[in-house]
């Protein structure tokens, strides 16, 4: 294609990732997380909150995925801040994040997942865990119309190849993101409102 790539995949460098479990209906839990992470865990299903580089993705009614810049220490401070039923697990080694941008980024998603990524159903601030090719992934809609796709490290070679293959017909370019930013140069998709 002469008018530039239709799909650009940029892979994030190392980041910190944590799986958080607890009672989201408890204000003390939400406040405790917000105090340490700087962003509160979303209560609305299939949404994510961001503050700067830190994110909290809804994974389930009592489960969130947190991410922050590489080297951040959340585990001990969160244990200190949260009381009662909760769990915090470092999963930094398990996650790979790629950002898909370009006019046809959505087409790559449609080749990969049965979920409905139409902007009306999947506006910025939404996220979804779903089948992705023959693996699974967390897909998040960004304010700049790009998508973040988070998947397990062991599937990374397969999925990088899959995405490149799916994007080829639209013109595909592969780049990288800085180590600190899952998606650089973008506005915050959803304000922290609780």
């Amino acid at each position: 294609m002469s008018d530039g790539p239709g799909v650009v995949m940029r892979e994030s460098g190392a980041r910190g990732w944590w799986n958080l479990r607890g009672d989201g209906d408890e204000p003390r839990f939400r406040d405790g997380v917000a105090a340490v992470v700087g962003v509160s865990p979303p209560i609305e299903p299939c949404t994510w909150h961001a503050a700067g580089d830190r994110r909290a993705y809804w994974l389930g009614p009592d489960e969130w995925l947190l991410t922050a810049e590489h080297g951040t220490e959340f585990e001990s401070p969160l244990r200190g801040a949260l009381h009662g039923r909760c769990s915090i697990v470092d999963v930094s080694g398990a996650q790979i994040l790629v950002n898909l941008s370009g006019a046809q980024a959505g087409e790559v998603l449609r080749k990969s997942s049965p979920y409905d990524f139409h902007p009306r159903r999947f506006p910025p601030g939404r996220c979804v865990q779903t089948n992705f090719a023959k693996a699974t992934a967390l897909v998040a809609a960004n304010a700049d119309a790009s998508f973040d796709v988070v998947f397990r490290r062991s599937y990374a070679d397969y999925l990088r190849g899959w995405i490149a293959d799916a994007g080829r017909e639209y013109g595909f370019l592969r780049g990288s993101l800085g180590t600190d930013h899952p998606t650089r140069r973008q506005r915050q998709p959803a304000q922290d409102d609780d």
């Binding site: 090719a133 693996a135 599937y155 070679d157 397969y158």
Partner: peptide
């Protein structure tokens, strides 16, 4: 579809692959 060749069955790789 594309589930042929290298995509027929995903390979999981360890960090030492």
């Amino acid at each position: 579809g594309r589930d042929v060749g290298e995509f027929h069955d995903p390979e999981r790789h360890t960090p030492m692959h």
